[in-house]
Amino acid sequence: MNTMTYSKRLNDRKMDELRPIEAKVGVIERADGSAMFKIGNTWAYASVYGPRNLYPKFMQDPQSGILRVNYNMMPFSGSGERVRPGANRRAKEISMVSEKALLPVLDLKEFPNSVVDVFIELPQTEAGSRCAGICAASMALADAGLNMKDLVAAVSVGRVDDKLLVDLDYSEEAYEDGPVADIPIAMMPQSGKITLLQMDGEVTKEDLRKAIGMGKEACGRIYEVMKKALKEKYEVQ
């Protein structure tokens, strides 16, 4: 029987400690809004184009603009083999849940029949890529001057063996010596409401509640980082 518990994270990270974060806004000059969000070795770019013309016409909504998110990993961004370019099911699903994670903060009613396009690209990934993408997209949408009642912050929380942790790295996601749960979560920090919640693994109801609490606290910290990055771009030059 395995009596070892998970006691030491890489780089001596504490259980509720995030990997080092780098965030910058306005990095893609052709876009209407853009940002870069790097957490540990996971690196995401996001650019926003819109509101703009929407084709094909059948997708247009006469009551509101629509949000369209596309998540993509660059071919050299995987931790092992090359990722063959082109649509794949995982990327399609992540695009969709990311879109649902961001939509609640936006109000696109004043842009009927148009689209706000968000493109998320990752040059380098090492766990937590969808969360990094959502953080980058969130800053990019704010940079694009859209009405947003809050930013959206995202992080993965989870469980490795007997420990609950924040911001799982690659070795923790792939941990094989005991039960693991990987829970990506996105929140609106102002209201504390959850806009993305997924789970892979095994976890009890109580641990899930605790993990979400840790996630809420971590998202609050990430919000401060995003706030700082947005202000830095616009402050006195």
Partner: peptide, 11 residues
């Protein structure tokens, strides 16, 4: 050599 004209980079 492969190249993708990513929509990220150009409207």
């Amino acid at each position: 050599v492969g190249a993708e004209l990513l929509p990220l980079s150009n409207p």
